[in-house]
């Protein structure tokens, strides 16, 4: 129910804020819901807040599993 998009952290702004980038658009969001975050990491952004960090390994594994299941049918 919640529009949330993956965005890359490009700058830490202090005071619980960070600048994130999706494509060529940037936005300042609050990091108050995260314990810590670093530049280069990806977060899920919803209503001006970073909700969680994206796990790159899990993402890769999910894609690999999708590819594997696709091959099983062909």
């Amino acid at each position: 129910m919640c529009l949330a998009v993956p965005a890359e952290v490009v700058e830490l702004l202090g005071e619980g804020q960070a600048r994130v980038r999706i494509g060529a658009t940037t936005q300042v969001v609050s990091t108050a819901l995260l314990d810590e975050v670093a530049v280069g990491e990806y977060v899920i952004v919803h209503v001006g807040f970073a909700l969680t960090k994206l796990d790159a390994d899990e993402a890769a594994q999910t894609l690999a599993l999708m590819a594997e299941w696709s091959e099983e049918v062909s």
């Binding site: 129910m1 919640c2 949330a4 609050s30 819901l33 919803h46 209503v47 001006g48 807040f49 909700l51």
Partner: peptide, 8 residues
Amino acid sequence: GFETTTPP
């Protein structure tokens, strides 16, 4: 909002 929007 549901639980996604509540923490903000």
